[in-house]
């Protein structure tokens, strides 16, 4: 913690070696967190770079006695959220305005296995439901940690987790889906 505090103070003063140390020390954490939402290595690397550039642009806002890894996780999750929303909008635009397949014939997609179906179901979830669910189930964060990371109240996180699970079950034909 003392090491972090000194590092932050040096980084705020514009010390290049402090910036370098921060990237060295926290890049693995940022990569792991971004990997939870993106499957392509290039995407993960681009977003991780973006996270550090945002971090150093706003380093003055960090209080040296604050939990720095928590703050960095928040910047990372917010960057992922923005990127997921952009990706979703691009995908919708391609689906709406993209070129039609010649002759109106479509190639039947290969039937995905259970993991593939789960992945597709998760990807269809809205980013504001998907992020807390992934943080809870994959990163194994507590509701309190998710609330701090996403800047939400704990009740809001619980509601989002409930909705995300309900939607997933409906998509995968679980108890909710079977009953309909």
């Amino acid at each position: 913690m003392d090491f972090d505090r000194e590092l932050i103070v040096r980084a705020q003063a514009g010390d290049r070696s402090a910036h370098e140390t921060i990237v060295n020390q926290y890049s693995a954490m940022v990569f792991r967190l971004v990997s939870r939402f993106f499957r392509n290595r290039e995407d993960v690397e681009d977003i991780a770079q973006d996270v550090f550039l945002k971090l150093f642009a706003r380093i003055d806002q960090v209080r040296p006695d604050e939990n720095f890894p928590g703050w960095l996780a928040r910047v990372t999750v917010n960057t992922c959220y923005d990127e997921l929303r952009k990706t979703r909008r691009r995908k919708e635009a391609i689906e709406t305005y993209g070129p039609e397949i010649a002759g109106g014939q479509t190639v039947a997609p290969r039937e995905p296995d259970s993991l593939g179906r789960a992945r597709q179901a998760l990807q269809r979830l809205d980013a504001k439901l998907r992020i807390p669910l992934v943080l809870k189930e994959v990163e194994e964060m507590s509701v309190e940690e998710i609330a701090k990371t996403m800047g939400l109240t704990q009740t809001n996180v619980k509601v989002r987790l409930f909705r995300a699970r309900k939607k997933l079950q409906a998509m995968l034909g679980g108890p909710e889906g079977d009953s309909q």
């Binding site: 990997s35 259970s114 993991l115 179906r117 789960a118 189930e137 995968l172």
Partner: peptide
Amino acid sequence: NPMNKFFESERKRFFEPDAFFTQRVM
């Protein structure tokens, strides 16, 4: 539940920065 297996597999899947990542960021 296929999601349980999926989440377990996701926990093991993550990328790590390469040796030149810091240089590129700097």
